[in-house]
């Protein structure tokens, strides 16, 4: 069983919602990321999502765009990100790690090399934002060949027909995008509407369904957590890095505090099965 499947199965037994923090690898500098990954796990993260910096992240709002720019200033590339996961794995063999990024770095590295090296580094899955299932056939072959999970987004605009297509191709979990928009929007989340869509997805797949985009505080995490199997939090954490540039310790501290707050709120809001 894959690390992701096992983690979700255990959480389900405990009746808990998964907390999945996202940070951009190498932001604000390469040495910051691995210790932060461990610290987030210690604060209650169940799965880690690591952004692969890209120069043109069209699915991301200003917060993650700037995180990419900070990371790229130190030249953090896809192989460096794999190196970070490898170092993380030296001390943590259990927590699943999912890469989130864009197609071009994978394309340039080569699908076969990416899949092989990602597996060797201890990566569990990949979410390529600009790779819809229609374009993925070739990449997916390599990812699946190495036992890596392909994670897909489902959006508020996704039709029923496409939802089924995506559910059929998805591995690991399905990621429902809670808003029409890019990452980092604030407010305007309609928990009830999201809940309805998550239910619909559950009727199409046995995979866990996570919800992300625009979840900025513990209260919203708990409310989304009540209708989904996982909540994904990105820009709210990355903002802490942005706000504390030059003070890495403080950035790490604020991030772990927010992760811990969300953990508590999620656990308080969910009733054991």
């Amino acid at each position: 069983m894959s690390r992701l499947a096992e983690r979700f199965r255990n959480l389900q037994h405990q009746g808990r919602t998964a907390l999945i923090p996202y940070v951009t690898a190498g932001d604000p500098e390469p040495g910051f990321t691995v210790p932060l990954m461990h610290a987030m796990v210690a604060s209650g993260a169940d799965v880690l999502e690591l952004g692969v910096p890209f120069s043109d992240p069209i699915g991301d709002g200003p917060v993650i765009q700037q995180a990419c720019e900070r990371a790229l200033r130190h030249g953090t590339g896809i192989r460096d990100v794999l190196g970070m996961v490898r170092r993380f794995r030296e001390q943590d063999a259990e927590t699943p790690v999912v890469l989130m990024g864009y197609m071009n770095p994978v394309e340039i590295m080569g699908y076969a090399a990416f899949a092989r090296e990602a597996l060797e580094s201890g990566v569990d899955g990949a979410l390529i934002v600009d790779m819809p299932p229609e374009e993925m056939a070739e990449v997916a072959e390599y990812l699946e060949g190495e036992g890596l999970d392909s994670i897909f987004l489902v959006a508020p605009t996704t039709t029923e027909e496409r939802m089924q297509l995506i559910c059929d191709k998805a591995r690991g979990f399905v990621y429902y995008v809670s808003v029409k928009g890019v990452t980092g929007g604030d407010g305007g989340l309609d928990v009830e509407a999201v809940g309805g869509r998550v239910q619909r997805l559950r009727s199409m797949t046995g995979l866990p369904v996570g919800v992300g985009f625009g979840i900025s505080d513990a209260d919203m995490a708990a409310r989304m957590g009540a209708v989904a199997d996982a909540v994904i939090v990105g820009s709210a954490l990355v903002r802490r890095i942005e706000a504390n540039q030059g003070d890495a310790e403080r950035a790490r501290c604020e991030i772990t505090t927010l992760v811990a707050d969300m953990r508590r709120a999620l656990d308080a809001g969910t009733v054991p099965a």
């Binding site: 699915g59 197609m103 600009d130 987004l153 959006a155 605009t157 496409r162 995008v177």
Partner: peptide, 8 residues
Amino acid sequence: FVPETLMA
């Protein structure tokens, strides 16, 4: 090659 929101 676009984010899912734009496919529809």
